[in-house]
């Protein structure tokens, strides 16, 4: 009696759908030849672990992503954080306003801004108080000084 082995399509179905109780699965369980064909396909379709990156690489990439992640959103910061941020911004803006008055020292806006950038580097406060705002405080909109003449 001729044995009806599984067709390629039937083997594929077993791989695609995990059909545990199908006729094809029952045949594969009892037929050495088909079980071997199915096993070969399963082995070939397994992810190749030899190509996986070493643990050190995985850790490095994961840590880099976590470092780039900002963590909780600014809206969730506690009230004290905003008080400190406001105080810091005021402390930075004060010398700019003073030096902008008539008779005061000439303001080098670029130099001041670069100092501000250094201070704010990596600090989300810089998002709340962008460079444009600091510029507006130190120098008038058209480049004129902002100090009160009176």
């Amino acid at each position: 009696m001729r044995v009806e082995h599984l067709t390629d399509d039937e083997l594929d179905s077993l791989l695609v759908e995990d059909q545990e109780n199908s006729r094809a699965a029952e045949h594969a369980a009892s037929c050495l030849s088909c079980r071997r064909r199915l096993g070969e396909l399963r082995r070939a379709l397994r992810p190749d672990e030899e190509l996986d990156p070493p643990l050190a690489t995985r850790v490095r990439v994961r840590e880099a992503a976590l470092a780039a992640w900002a963590g909780p959103q600014p809206a969730r910061r506690p009230a004290w954080w905003w008080a400190v941020a406001a105080g810091l911004a005021a402390a930075l803006a004060l010398p700019l306003l003073q030096s902008g008055r008539p008779g005061g020292a000439e303001v080098d806006a670029a130099e001041v801004l670069s100092q501000v950038d250094i201070l704010l580097a990596g600090d989300p406060v810089s998002v709340a108080f962008p460079a444009e705002l600091v510029t507006a405080l130190a120098v008038g909109r058209d480049g004129a000084e902002t100090g009160d003449a009176s």
Binding site: P47, D52, P53, R58, V61, R62, A64, A68, W69
Partner: peptide
Amino acid sequence: ELSVWRVCRHLLPAGEDVEGAVQETFVRAL
């Protein structure tokens, strides 16, 4: 992470930076 590495390894265009793709995936997910 291994699944992400494997997906990037097989789906990125040839010659592209797998490591960079994995990191970008993580950053986007986070």
